[in-house]
Amino acid sequence: MTHEGGNDPPTDRTGQNQGDTAMLFDIPTTPAVAVKGEQAAYPVHRVFCVGRNYAAHAAEMGHEVDREAPFYFTKAASTIVHSGATIPYPPGTENYHYEMEFVVAIGKPVFKADLAEAASAVYGYACGLDMTRRDLQLVAREKGRPWDLGKDVEQSAVISDITKAAEFGEIAKQRIWLSVNGETKQEATLDDLIWKVPELVSHLSRYYHLIPGDLIYTGTPAGVGAVKAGDKIEGGVDGLAPIALTITDPE
């Protein structure tokens, strides 16, 4: 954005000059994801996750598919961790689950978009893991409470390098899969997605001004399950950089 006067410092959404404000303490920098073929990285602004977007997974979780509209939960951008990481088993759970995901990276601002506008707003795709404290999620669900303790877990939004949309091509029957210690646990194809990518971007843009840096984890196939310390998770989507995560002992 260009400001009158040319030398004015940038403003935040409150209208305050960022350059004029001294901070009491430092916080972690914005996480960023490598992009295939690019020197610059993709900074992460927000992480949206789609619930029950594969029929077989909805069934294994005890639900019918809601075809009226998609629904979402969020993870903080600070939960992002790169493929290949080794992380400790998280506190507060005895049932930590993997969920393999096809991730959409937004590349331009979009608001109240139609399907064509939504499709054109996609920058690229990646593999993702939505790691979940399942026991805490289920307790919250049964009590009608938010899922934050189950889903918004530190180091729980794992992501591979991003592949640009033009390089990936049309979303069709690409295989999505996950294994634990070499044993396949999840397997489906992207055409099994109930809500397709343009539909998700269009629908979400009715409620948010989506901008570059926003990620959408589009849901997981059936076959989710628990991991333990020492387990190695690997997964992939045809045409994308694969994903890997190793779980170690709790802190």
Rank of each mutant, 00 (worst) to 15 (best):
T14S: 15
T14W: 10
M23E: 14
D26M: 15
V33R: 07
K36V: 01
A41Y: 04
P43E: 04
A59L: 02
M61A: 04
F71A: 12
F71S: 12
Y72C: 01
T74I: 10
K75Y: 01
A76W: 15
I80A: 11
H82G: 02
Y89S: 00
N95Q: 07
E99T: 08
E101M: 10
V104G: 03
V110E: 11
D114V: 01
Y123Q: 09
G124D: 13
G124P: 08
Y125C: 04
L129V: 14
M131K: 00
M131I: 00
A140N: 03
A140Y: 00
A140H: 08
R141S: 03
R141Y: 09
E142L: 08
G144M: 04
R145M: 00
W147Y: 06
K151S: 14
Q155D: 09
V158R: 05
V158K: 03
K164A: 04
R175E: 12
S179C: 11
N181E: 08
N181C: 08
E183V: 15
T184S: 09
K185D: 11
A188E: 05
D191F: 06
D191N: 08
L193R: 04
S202I: 01
R206K: 11
L210A: 02
D214R: 05
Y217F: 06
A222H: 06
G223Q: 00
V224P: 12
V224W: 09
A226C: 09
G239C: 08
L240S: 01
L240H: 06
A241Q: 11
P242V: 15
P242G: 15
I243G: 06
A244T: 14
A244F: 07
T248V: 02
